[in-house]
Amino acid sequence: MPLSFLTADRAFEAGADDVALPYDDHDQWRRPYRPGPYRVGIAALLLLLASFVLLSAMIIAFAAELTGALIVLGVGAVVIACALRILRMGVWVSRAGLRRVGFLGTVTVPWGQTSNVRTVQQPVRWLGLPRTVQGQALVMERQGGAQLPPLLTDHNADFLSRPEAFERATDTVEVWGDEYRQR
């Protein structure tokens, strides 16, 4: 099974500095960076929890409590769905536009409706918690002046302790925006 999220970093690691958009198919939605270690760790812990919940559902089913087993099985399925959604969160790009996937919702903005995608210095949330620290954020301005919340920050679960990955990701999203906004 091809792991499409690895191709962006491989293009940069191979020293292909002239390859700004390292994908062959620009119509497919792609995340231009790898998920960070904190995001993957949280998802792994949730999947570990789900395995214990599913094991308990099996034990409850063997004890002839089918209603309880189905409830616990449903809880296990919800935990697995949450882990997968956490892994899917982030910024995705394609020829059609930019997509910001959150835990509960997704916002898609066509490139034609954006006026600017840039990196700015501003207070950012640390790992998505209420505490803010000074950092960098990738922001997108829509035509008409409306601005989405920061797309990426250097203190989120993908880029905390990975400043070079943050720079590559923001540069890649800015290049996608520059190329497709002009069309």
Rank of each mutant, 00 (worst) to 15 (best):
R95K: 09
P110S: 08
V109R: 04
V72Y: 11
I86H: 09
S94R: 14
G105L: 02
I86G: 12
T106G: 10
L70Q: 03
G97I: 00
A77W: 11
R95L: 00
G105F: 04
V109I: 06
S115Y: 01
L87P: 11
V79A: 09
W111C: 05
R99V: 00
T67C: 00
V75P: 01
V101G: 12
T106Q: 12
T106M: 07
V93F: 08
W92T: 13
G90F: 15
G105T: 03
S94H: 13
L73M: 13
A81S: 13
G68K: 02
C82S: 13
R88Q: 15
T67L: 07
Q113V: 00
V107R: 11
I80Y: 06
L98G: 09
F103T: 02
V109Y: 07
V79T: 10
S94K: 13
I71R: 05
F103A: 12
L73E: 07
V93I: 03
I71H: 06
V78Q: 07
A96G: 09
A81V: 07
R88S: 15
G76R: 03
A69Y: 13
A96H: 13
V78D: 10
A83P: 10
R99G: 06
V107D: 05
S94Y: 14
V107S: 05
G102N: 09
T67V: 03
G68N: 13
R88C: 09
Q113P: 01
V109N: 07
V101H: 14
R88M: 14
G74K: 01
T67R: 00
G68I: 02
G105V: 00
M89C: 13
T114L: 15
S115E: 10
G112P: 00
A81E: 10
T106W: 05
S94A: 14
A69K: 06
S94L: 00
R100N: 08
A69P: 06
L87D: 10
G90Q: 09
L73D: 03
G112Y: 01
L84R: 15
L84P: 12
L104R: 07
V91Q: 12
V91T: 09
V109W: 06
Q113C: 02
G102M: 09
A83L: 09
G112R: 04
F103W: 06
V107E: 04
V72G: 05
V107K: 08
R88W: 13
V75G: 01
C82E: 11
I80P: 04
W92I: 00
G76A: 08
R95F: 00
R88H: 15
R85V: 06
V93E: 15
C82A: 15
V91K: 12
T67N: 02
P110E: 05
G105A: 09
L87E: 10
P110Y: 04
R100A: 10
T108L: 01
T108W: 05
F103M: 15
F103H: 01
L104N: 03
P110R: 04
W92Q: 15
R99I: 00
V79K: 01
A96V: 00
